[in-house]
Design a protein around this nucleic acid. Structure first.
Lengths: 233, 233, 233, 233
DNA sequence: CATGAATGAGCTTTCATTCAT
DNA sequence: GATGAATGAAAGCTCATTCAT
């Protein structure tokens, strides 16, 4: 490779760069695919577009993922696990009232999932679950169940400490989770096409939600501080 | 039909049968389309499949609906937007407290939309809105806006009568609507693939939701300080 | 049929009208078909449109003409023959100079064919001949040949009387005919879609044509260089 | 190519072969399309047929031309409108009398268009203009207008140099053009189906036409009763 | 490994033709 | 005879997937 041919030199450079980036390819493709699947849905995303956004050719995409469906599965797998250990630990160590814990919990979700691209996966799963039952089961095991358990422990703590009324924990979880998941859906579906006057301010929406919720959950003989939906700003 | 002219009778019968058949077609097609759109999404549903399920040929479908998109709009009109007149009237005539009105409202939604196949349309729009902006705009105009307005009037009534605290009506609407819409989503996406032990009992879910909500909304004598989202602990 | 049933009476009236018009049906269909074929071409004309313009149903059209192609053939047959006898006689009796005869000839063509819907048939044949060889042969025998013969006799008369130079009669015929046929084409094709500034005034066009032609054909005392086919320049 | 690097050479060869193939595709497709459009008309030609005749698949056609209409436009550009620059220049540089120029002009048209398959496009536009207004407008802009302008300049030159009588240039253009266009029509419609004895010898037809025309246009000292193309009214 | 030209199954839509009424 | 609802064969176009280079 000490050839004097300049083209060969360029080729060598290219090859070097290629080899350096070879391992990065799947990751770049997955990132591009996440973006596009979230933005346009599964059927609406063209394989070539994914490849182009990842800076490779259509052929290369199929070199790493045997089909569009496999790519989709890989995207979901890549993006949904691995955060729960950290979170569980965080909550085990939480010092403070349970209402504050719940506020923190919701805030953390918004900062780490809801406001990031990762929220698109939620929407993705909702939209396409019907067409990928296998993936849906995987999602249930790896994401939904752990999230459920984590929230249940928070609510149980509140009940145990007399901060919350006794409740059916599962439905308590739903009451916390639902609007957040819905917000993720909204952000990535109708919310993107609607006139501004119909759009939701996510942070305000979440604040209203959690306070209303805490008001509803709280054990209060003496209704001291009534949280409310704030008056029109 | 006591006519003495047998030809007239036969002709009338013939026409009747034909017209009965012709009149039935759109309904059969709309029912088939609802099923399939909900099951497979808009893009995933083939026109020919709709026709086949309705027991007619591909051509016949286009005899009644000029395009797949028009078929979808007709499905939405048939199942949702066509009913707002009736609902508006119903609520105009409602006698009783506003909390009861809201309970009735949520119950009615569940019985007429949520628990029926029509709830699939909600899920459909969430999933496909990004890919079919024209459909999204249609849905916004024909469904979201009227639904929004109806709920706003209910909440306004409660505030006006001193049953609810003053509030930002738009976010009040969201607080009512969101879990219901989310339930619709759930039913038609992940909910269809999950093990039974993780499934939601919709009626209970809705009941919990509305009571928690009413608790949060209700005007209480000592509404001192509105709690807010605290800073990160 | 002395029934007292008013519907039966109406039916009887309808039937009578129907029978009265039964023989007229094919003619009405042919007229409608001529209009539409000329206006939109063969492929561009829909069978249902023809039926509607004729005031009958689609089914009836196929009752009289076994296929769209048969309808087309019938239109051409209906509209192209039967005028030549009259014309031949007219010209046999013509008194006057041959240039005047030719002027009259061109004028007559314009008035009876060129300016009427019948000119559309010319365009029709030109456009569709390739797809209907059988029809083309028919047209050749029934229309082109007789027209050719008639014009040849006119030119021959001029040559015989010393009004025109000797010439190749066949090409003389083409020289007369061509611009007229072209005009018919133009009227029914590009002429209908072009900006006004590019449009032709047919009468002026024909006048220019015939006078230029007569100038070229006329025997002149100083017929020094009768225009001939020059060697390739 | 005297490089010592064998890989470079191979790569170059490969790319060359591939590019040669890719570059050839549009030409092959255009040739096939010209054939078929002329033979069967625009509507009558199936995209797949064009592809098959070019030896490729349906999909490949749409790789190079985004729609059937674009394919047609490309055929027109390739065969006619793309040549006007060359022709305009040719005539700007012409040395000789204007009658000779006109003879050359007609001869050139015959050799480059009339006698080639390209003449079929003229017929095509005549036949299909009514059904495809967009194509007609394209043809008007890209072909008719430039051709018109070119001929007008020729005639104007003759008038300016005293070789032709003053005339209405637009109708002069028609007088030149019409028989040529008609010839193109004839060749591709009825002419293809008629017995030999009725067929036209195009070269002789054109020669007769142009000489008769020049005789009619020419300015002659003793223009006693010279019928002429009248000056603009 | 990477490329991108090529493929062809699949989708929506049109419309001549049929046939039960 | 007349009707018009129903049919289904095409046709234009898209795009996941393949494979020669």
């Amino acid at each position: 490779m000490s050839s004097s041919c300049p083209i060969c030199e360029i080729a060598a450079t290219v090859r070097a760069k290629r080899e350096r980036r070879k391992d990065a390819r799947p990751g770049e493709l997955l990132a591009a695919a996440l973006d596009l699947f979230v933005e346009k849905g599964f059927a609406g995303t063209r394989a070539e577009e994914v490849a182009k956004r990842a800076g490779v050719s259509k052929g290369t995409l199929f070199l790493y993922f045997s089909s569009k469906e496999e790519l989709f599965k890989a995207v979901v797998r890549e993006n949904i696990s691995g955060r729960f250990d950290e979170w569980n630990e965080e909550f085990d160590n939480f010092q403070g009232t349970t209402p504050d814990m719940l506020r923190y919990c919701v805030k953390a979700w918004w900062e780490r999932i809801g406001s990031t691209k990762a929220s698109g996966i939620t929407k993705l799963m909702m939209s396409e679950a019907g067409n990928f039952p296998e993936l849906a089961a995987f999602y249930q095991t790896e994401v939904i169940q752990p999230g459920n358990d984590l929230l249940k422990r928070v609510l149980q703590r509140g009940v145990g400490r007399g901060e919350f009324q006794p409740m059916d924990l599962q439905y308590g979880v739903y009451a916390v989770l639902t609007p957040m998941l819905y917000l993720a859906m909204w952000k990535h579906s109708l919310g993107t096409c609607l006139a501004n006057n119909a759009s939701i301010d996510p942070e305000k929406y979440i604040a209203v939600h959690v306070e209303t919720l805490l008001h509803g959950l709280s054990a209060r003989p003496t209704a001291v501080a009534a949280p409310t939906i704030p008056a029109t700003p």
